[in-house]
């Protein structure tokens, strides 16, 4: 695999007779932050679930390291957190599930929450915190528990700009500190332009990759580039809409 962590060849996927994804070929570099931008129904979530093995299908080939440690941030915030565990225990779930001593990492989780000004959430239950806070807690989990690859299925489109900025910086931090490869699907151009270094544009149903953009020139230039190219997949949009 060399520097690549995932490589797909002719990935197509159908549910019943409906073709969801068609001939998807791409390579993901280790340590990169890759975004998949596409309209609703382009198969973004399905793609992440296929790549992470949540949906199993042997009809195509995905080459990846067999023992990758994976993390996943689901689109539905409720799916990320267990309601009967408080925030600190939710963050430490991966250690518990692997029967590893979570006490060693509890201090790390506390430090991180403190640093982010979220210490007061430690012993609250998911039911007692806002959607944005739930999202932050589920992201912090994967900062405390380092993974090789983190799949992010958008999920913060409803958050305010302050929360979004915190999430963006946390994701960059996971990528930098833990050397975690990040795969993000979104229909938000700003999210992709802000944190990704590569962006694949997916067409409407069935999802096909129609362009690959290298994003290296900072948010403004990235944003401009994606807006120009995004007209292929969102023909009716105008900037600022």
């Amino acid at each position: 695999m060399n520097d690549n962590i995932i490589q797909t060849e002719k990935l197509s996927f159908s549910i019943g007779s409906k073709l969801i994804l068609n001939d998807i070929d791409f390579t993901i570099r280790k340590g990169s932050i890759t975004g998949f931008l596409g309209p609703n129904g382009s198969g973004k979530t399905t793609l992440l679930k296929l790549l992470s093995g949540i949906i199993k299908d042997k009809s195509f080939s995905i080459k990846s390291d067999t023992e990758l440690k994976q993390g996943f941030i689901f689109q539905m915030v409720e799916q990320n957190l267990i309601p009967w565990k408080n925030c600190i225990n939710n963050i430490l779930i991966p250690f518990e599930s692997l029967n590893r001593n979570k006490i060693d990492f509890e201090d790390v989780a506390h430090e991180l929450l403190n640093e982010l000004g979220l210490e007061e959430l430690c012993y609250r239950f998911p039911n007692e915190i806002s959607g944005g806070q739930k999202q932050l807690i589920s992201i912090i989990r994967w900062l405390v528990y380092p993974t090789d690859i983190l799949f992010i299925d958008e999920g913060w489109s409803m958050l305010d700009i302050v929360q979004k900025e915190r999430i963006h910086s946390l994701i960059k931090r996971i990528n930098k500190e833990n050397k975690t490869t990040i795969l993000l699907v979104s229909h938000s151009i700003e999210d992709i332009a802000m944190i990704c270094d590569t962006c694949f544009l997916l067409s409407n149903s069935p999802g096909e990759i129609i362009d690959k953009l290298e994003l290296k020139d900072g948010f403004v230039a990235n944003n401009e580039l994606i807006w120009t190219k995004a007209k292929k997949i969102f023909p009716t949009i105008t900037k600022g809409s």
């Binding site: 679930k49 992470s52 093995g53 949540i54 994976q70 993390g71 996943f72 689901f74 409720e78 799916q79 990320n80 267990i82 779930i93 991966p94 518990e96 599930s97 692997l98």
Partner: peptide, 21 residues
């Protein structure tokens, strides 16, 4: 149904998924 994807990501065995979730 709600947590089976999380169970997969956490690499929980079927027994652990039932017991812990």
């Amino acid at each position: 149904n709600k947590y089976q994807d999380l169970g997969h990501i956490l690499k929980l065995s079927k027994y652990d998924f039932i017991k812990k979730i």
